[in-house]
Structures are given as C-alpha cells and as structure tokens.
Amino acid sequence: MTSSRRETEKGGAVSPELTASLSVRGVAVTYPNGTVALTDASFELGGGTICGLVGVNGSGKSTLFKAIMGFVAPAAGEIEIAGLSPRAAQKRNLVAYVPQAEDVDWSFPVLVEDVVMMGRYGRMGFMRRPSPNDRRMVDEALDRVGMAAYRTRQIGELSGGQRKRVFLARALAQDGLIILLDEPFTGVDVQTESAIIDLLRELKAQGHLMLVSTHNLGSVPDFCDQVVLVMRTVLAAGPTATTFTQANLEQAFGGVLRHFRLDGHALHQDDDRRSVTVLTDDERPVVFYGSVAERDEPLKRKGEEGS
C-alpha cells in the first residue's frame, strides 16, 4: 500500500527504495548562553517502529528533537535521516512533525482542512496550488483520524483531543517516512489516546518510523517497541522489553518520580519473595512485578501482550 501511494505522487519526490532510518551518533548540543543540553548522545532506529523518547523536563528531549529537525546545529556528532542530512531529508519531505499543543497559536485564522493541507505544501509547485491528488490526500487523512465532519471549523473551536487529531492528520497528509510527535498524549482523553495509538500502529505496519516524546510512562510499554531514555545524553536505547527497566528509569528520572514498593507481608500472605514497584510522575504509573534482581519487563495492559 505504501509503495503504490508513493508512485502516485507528483514528481516522485520520495524514492521508493528509501527505508525509514534515524541515526544519531555522538551528538553534543551547546546553546549560545553556555548551557550544555546534550553530550555524546547516540542511538540507531530502522524500519517501521514506534520509539518512545523518555526523560524528565529539561533532560534534553526537545533539544534532541530540535537537532533532528535541524533547528540547532550539533557542536559534535552527526544525525542522519534515511541516510541523508536532516536538511536534505526535509527537502525531500521525509520528516513530518506533530507539535505540542502549547506551541500552536489556536486563534490563528485557519480551518481544520487548511491545517491538514499544509502537510501537502512541500510537495506543491511554486505557487502552492493544491492538485486533485493533494485534495484526495487531505480527505483521506481527515477520514483516518475521524475529523472529516469538523473540516470547516476554526482550529480554536476544537477540544484537546480533536486538536491533536488535526495535527496528526497533517502528518498523514504529508506522508513523511519519519514522524516526530511531541508529547501527543498531554491533555488528551483515554479514548483519543487509544485512537492515536491504533493509528501509530497502522503507520508502523506501513513502514513509518515514529519518535514519540512522552513523559506518560505508563503507556510507553503499551505502544512503544523501542525506547530511548534521555538525561543530558542517551542513557539507554533499545527494545522496550530490555531497556524500559526499573533500573534504567530510576537513573533517568532520579528523584523526580514517586516510587512505591510493596513486598513481603504488605503484598503476600505467604513467603513469595516477589514485589510490586510503582513509578509515577502523577500521570499513568508504570508497574514492575517481581524481584529487582531479575531484569523484569514492565507490565502491559491486559490484552496487549500479543500486539
């Protein structure tokens, strides 16, 4: 499906042989005021995947996003998107970005369909005249996020969840190989959250690479198959099962998280040595079950083990 869609695009902007990959090697970022935001950050992602970018506020998550978007030039190291420099990748429309709700001016005089059409601008000609194909992509994107009925609303009239869907639709319309999502679940109801997660899974199946910054720890094991833990550098990166561990999280979050541990008679009637550990930053907590000595996997919600 992905390849047939690409062929229909004007001018063949995306070569079909490109596969999604993101490689960050030894990246350091220092701001002009002297703040060192990141040092020696490295991780590699390839193919269709959903990767959680996890860390406390100020850990360098947004700096990493900015570096991948080419907004800040790394003082050291390099970033490659599908084998290209960030700027070259952007010129070929490989990177789509879903902004944080706070970063959007909701009183701007644009309608829902205008915002989604903005996803197509990079593929339009000099005068930015939408082609029938551009319009079809916008219609499809609006349908997929269930916002077709709201297409002529001004964006400020929407609820928090609807706003997220509109910007997700813009990323769909753009059809970027790599999609960066900045805190997509903040201020979103549970229903919208699972709708967004379902959509991300579909995109993953189609070969899109998604990097999702989040501090909603509890849902990370639910939908991320890879995790990058950030604390001024990349502390750990890899498959969620082996990387999103209690030991790594404690290192990434230091004293910021609330930490509850139940064991012995508070938890069991018998001599079971296992314990329950709950880590939370007041959103949905992440729960570990078992003894710390084993490298336990975080619990998923019921019914999602097989996905």
Binding site: M69, G70, F71, R87, Q90, K91, R92, N93, V95, A96, Y97, P99, D103, V104, D105, F108, V110, M118, G119, Y121, G122, F126, M127, R128, R170, Q174, G176
Partner: peptide, 21 residues
C-alpha cells in the same frame, strides 16, 4: 506569490522547516 509560504512560517515555523522551507 509567497503569501502561502509566509502564512506557514507565521503559523508553524517547525512544520514550515520540516517541509524544506
């Protein structure tokens, strides 16, 4: 000629950059 590009930059700079503007 350029009002659409300018609108994009004014509305969402990050997105404008991400599509190569």
């Amino acid at each position: 000629v350029k009002w659409k590009d300018l609108m994009l930059v004014f509305f969402d700079e990050t997105h404008a950059r991400s599509i190569g503007l």
